[in-house]
């Protein structure tokens, strides 16, 4: 991990209604605390902004200091909802060396759809690496990148997911991610 002996690593989560300048406001506060950002993932979903930041701070900077400072950086009190937690030792920083598959599910919008699929995948030790879900013209669409344990037979998983989908009018498909890379990226898969 990219830590220095006297530094403290925090994982920071910020949520807000989206507007221009939120990243500026957050990073300004981190910089003021002499923090150094080493990872960041941000998205906007249906008008709401979320960001996950990993940053190193000098020893002595507490999680409460970081949370308070960033929250104060909003345009008004309570605008930025902030959570800060110290990075735990032993948590891997990279993705596991497992084959990544893309799960696509499409069907009618009903409560509990993601929960059903997630429960099934958790029961088979399948991990979400990236997950999106949204409504499009009345259809609920789930797109996920998942990693499969090497002991799990793909055919069995595909058949079981097909059955699970059929029970709820969903079409659920699992394909290796390389087919999407091959078709959509200039660079040759495996080169």
């Amino acid at each position: 991990m990219d830590t220095m002996p006297d530094s403290q690593c925090y994982i920071i989560s910020v949520m807000s209604v989206d507007r221009v300048g939120i990243i500026h406001d957050i990073t300004e506060q981190i910089l003021a605390l002499q923090g150094n950002i080493i990872g960041l993932s941000q998205t906007v979903m249906r008008g709401y902004f979320t960001v996950l930041v990993e940053a190193l701070f000098p020893a002595g900077v507490k999680a409460e200091d970081v949370m308070e400072r960033i929250a104060q950086g909003g345009h008004r009190p309570g605008e930025l909802q902030v959570l800060v937690m110290p990075r735990q030792a032993g948590v891997p920083t990279g993705k596991p060396h497992a084959e990544t598959y893309v799960l696509t599910a499409r069907g009618p919008d009903r409560p509990g759809t993601i929960h059903r699929i997630a429960a099934f995948l958790a029961g088979h030790d399948v991990n979400f690496e990236d997950l999106y879900a949204y409504l499009d013209s009345g259809q609920f669409i789930i797109l996920a990148q998942v990693t499969l344990p090497s002991s799990l037979p793909l055919e069995r998983l595909q058949l079981d997911l097909e059955m699970l989908g059929r029970a709820s009018d969903m079409e659920i498909i699992v394909q290796h991610e390389n087919i999407f890379k091959a078709v959509n990226e200039i660079k040759m898969v495996g080169s």
Partner: peptide, 12 residues
Amino acid sequence: MLQCQSILDTLE
């Protein structure tokens, strides 16, 4: 990162 639309277009 794969784009959602690229995935759906490929499926189509």
